[in-house]
Design a protein around this nucleic acid. Structure first.
Lengths: 307, 307
DNA sequence: CTGTTAGCGCATTCAG
DNA sequence: CTGAATGCGCTAACAG
């Protein structure tokens, strides 16, 4: 690769002039300008990004740590994020991490000046507080100012409203294992139920169980009646449906399964009703946050999805 | 962030000593060594990756340009690649590109010293020759030395063999639109057919058609008989099946659809017979190539998949 | 308008 | 064993 020195020599000017032409570009005699441009062209010169970063103290790299267990979910986010980032001329440094320690390691390794900021996506487990410029997307619980999250309360409300309109008033909920997400979901669920005059039955709510199959078994073992089942996402929905059928419970006839997050499904892929979030919208907000252009409103609301 | 200077000052030694301790680490008095280590610890010092890159002329970043149209396919590759790369302490810079110009742009933007090498994955379209250190994975056609590709001839052979064992001897093929991939596939197809004493009927082979639906319509319009259909990948298979059913042709009873690349499907997802490739194996080879440890054998063979 | 100088943070000489 | 000096490629401040 040719350097700025080569260009300067060929163009018979100083490095500074070359730099000016290729960056600031104002206040340069047209002749020199042309000479530089021509020299750069013939040498196929590209300013070295690393050297640039060293001076500017910014790499234009954003680290993205994908913590989603189910890869199919991450891919949509990745695409949306990459699109937003490249629109802002930022690069996306990718890392997968399937549990908290792995996320920590990834954060460590990316915190050596290589990235301007970090993004953690879809961590469904508890994360220790991360001091750096880390933004959380769709994670279980995170400081509000540094994260963009789904409005889970709104989602649960919508779901209950939808189900009760479909005459499914005995609604079970397999909630997130914990965190703010679980709290908000439960709140939305209770609130909407109250509005619908549906009596609250604690047995219908399973919490603190990270294994969905076990959660469902608990529910069935309790012999509480339910004609609808709220689960946190599509993969949980799939598992639930399989298990329900194993129990000879027909879906959706006997039990309607409703996914509280169906954003990552392909269009027309499934007939499971769900709340869908705009990945593009989420990515846009996240990138805005990362770039320090807070739009002060990091809660995203989803729309009802059902074919 | 603290710099090497801060550490040197705190440890009462020179920058050079600090550097020695934290890198080469030999030929340093134990006392200084401890002092440096302690200082680095209290300052939470991490050598700046950018400054390091500037001197070492290597960034440890590998650019990955995902050219797969169907995102579901890219995600498996991404995960496999990231795993291999991080094992080699390399970073993965992600970029999506859906057509040739976009790939070109991505290559341009990543060729400014930020990446040590580039990887293009799954380009199903013609690519102009790329001069840089670009390695191609699963692309339509690329110089053999710079690419890891599926052994398509072997795949087609295997498919034809499998189908004829299942008494499906009238095998149609919707081939790749062009490139070496198409050539090899056709060759494998013909060779196996010959071995099985299946007469070759050019009408059964559709080539040069990038739109799978149109390709299939061509085939059907020609009224040639076929009891099996070879397509290049799972998404094509899905489209084909839908269309066949629109034509009242039952799958797999009347026509068995066989996917020549089913690597990116989830286990047990589909009952379509296919050739599957080990993404991990492909990623391993690709990373070896990128790191200059050629293993001299960049062809990957797939295994028969059918439940 | 332009060249010289300094410095980003680090590793690597080369002397002591 | 260790410190001072040099340079990686570039930009910015400062003189001319």
């Amino acid at each position: 690769m040719s350097t700025i020195n080569d260009v300067a020599r060929l163009a018979q000017v100083s490095k500074a002039t070359v730099s000016r032409v290729l960056s600031g570009s104002r206040g340069v005699k047209e002749a020199s300008r042309q000479a530089v441009l021509r020299a750069a062209e013939t040498l196929n010169y590209k300013p070295n990004a690393i050297a640039r970063s060293l001076t500017s103290q910014t790499t234009h790299c954003i680290g993205v740590i994908c913590a989603t267990e189910h890869v199919q979910q991450s891919t949509g986010y990745l695409q949306a994020l990459e699109k937003q980032l490249s629109q802002h001329r930022k690069h996306l440094l990718l890392r997968f991490a399937s549990d908290a320690p792995a996320v920590l390691r990834a954060v460590e390794e990316l915190s050596s000046g290589l990235c301007d900021a970090l993004l953690v996506v879809g961590a469904r487990f508890a994360l220790p507080p991360l001091h750096e410029d880390v933004i959380f997307i769709d994670c279980l619980s995170a400081p509000d100012a540094q994260s963009v999250a789904c409005d889970r309360q709104f989602a649960a409300q919508t779901a209950v409203e939808y189900l009760s309109r479909h005459k499914r008033r005995d609604i079970a909920l397999i909630n997130f294992p914990g965190g703010d997400a679980a709290r908000e979901t439960l709140q939305g669920y209770r609130e909407a139920a109250e509005n619908q005059l549906i009596p609250f039955n604690r047995q219908r709510v399973i919490e603190g169980e990270s294994e969905p199959r076990i959660a469902l078994q608990k529910l069935i073992n309790s012999r509480v009646k339910f004609t609808a089942l709220l689960v946190t996402d599509d993969s949980q929905a799939q598992e639930a449906i399989t298990l329900l059928r194993d129990y000879q419970i027909s879906v959706p006839e006997q039990v309607v399964v409703f996914s509280l997050d169906g954003s990552t499904r392909l269009p027309g892929q499934s007939a499971i009703p769900a709340i869908g979030y705009s990945l593009e919208g989420i990515a846009r907000k996240a990138v805005a946050l990362v770039l320090g252009q807070d739009d002060e409103h990091n809660r995203v609301r989803g729309t009802l999805l059902c074919d």
